[in-house]
Amino acid sequence: MSKNNLKTFAKYFIKIIILISILLVGIDFTFHRHAYFALEEIYGFPAFFGFVSFIFIVLVGKWLRKILMRKEDYYD
């Protein structure tokens, strides 16, 4: 029972996020989005940029573990 709670919550959460994502990219086609730089005005650019940046950050972080990670009592 208790295990179901978090799983059902996650299921709904994922559905909602996917729905909002589709809406947000969809809305880009309905009007011309102004920005300071032409690059940002490309359809769906912030979405693409956010998605790629996030994955880049996490993967670089994972790779950094090889260099920077030590045992918990390293300084003791």
Partner: peptide, 29 residues
């Protein structure tokens, strides 16, 4: 919102495919 929501989407994607780094007891330099 595009930036933030798609970043969340990326997070869900990484968790789904078990690419998100798990918590490890450690010291980070």
């Amino acid at each position: 919102l595009q930036l933030l929501v798609f970043a969340i989407l990326a997070f869900l994607f990484l968790v789904k495919f078990r690419l998100y780094p798990s918590e490890i007891k450690s010291t980070v330099l």
